[in-house]
């Protein structure tokens, strides 16, 4: 599969979304990410049983913080997909990139002009 997806996504690999701490998400925004999405395994398929379910709860909590601090919770999302769903991965990447583009740069994005770089697996930051 040679699927195309948005190039301005930076992938941060984590062992399991269950390991995604509130701080990791906040840090990405503080460093200037315009959007962050967490890509976890399908619900029910977590190798550690509930890692992805817990991650979603944390994502929801951080969304509230982002709303409160004026960045906007809609810049953070959680998706569930399996590693076999390449097409779905690309689709989500494009969907998220489009959404962030529409929202415009984060107020904390120093560059503000947009368009950073690259990509690969669990957690994506769109810049």
């Amino acid at each position: 599969m040679r699927l195309q997806y948005s190039t301005n996504i930076r992938i941060v690999e984590m062992t399991c979304t269950g390991n995604v701490d509130h701080r990791v998400l906040l840090n990405a925004f503080e460093e200037g990410a315009d959007g962050v999405y967490v890509a976890g395994c399908m619900e029910g398929d977590c190798h550690f049983l509930k890692g992805n379910i817990r991650a979603r709860k944390r994502v929801n909590a951080v969304k509230k913080v982002l709303d409160e601090i004026g960045i906007g919770g809609e810049r953070l999302e959680m998706y569930n997909l399996s590693s076999a769903q390449g097409a779905r991965f690309a689709q989500i990447a494009n969907e998220m990139a489009a959404k962030i583009k529409e929202l415009g740069p984060s107020p904390l994005n120093k560059a503000r002009s947009g368009n950073g770089c690259c990509g690969c697996s669990k957690e994506g930051e769109t810049k």
Partner: peptide, 18 residues
């Protein structure tokens, strides 16, 4: 420690936005 860091980061971002 964790809550302290989260709060610090949140406050910094809030002020940065302002």
């Amino acid at each position: 420690e964790k809550e302290t860091e989260i709060m610090a980061s949140s406050l910094r971002m809030m002020r940065e936005v302002e």
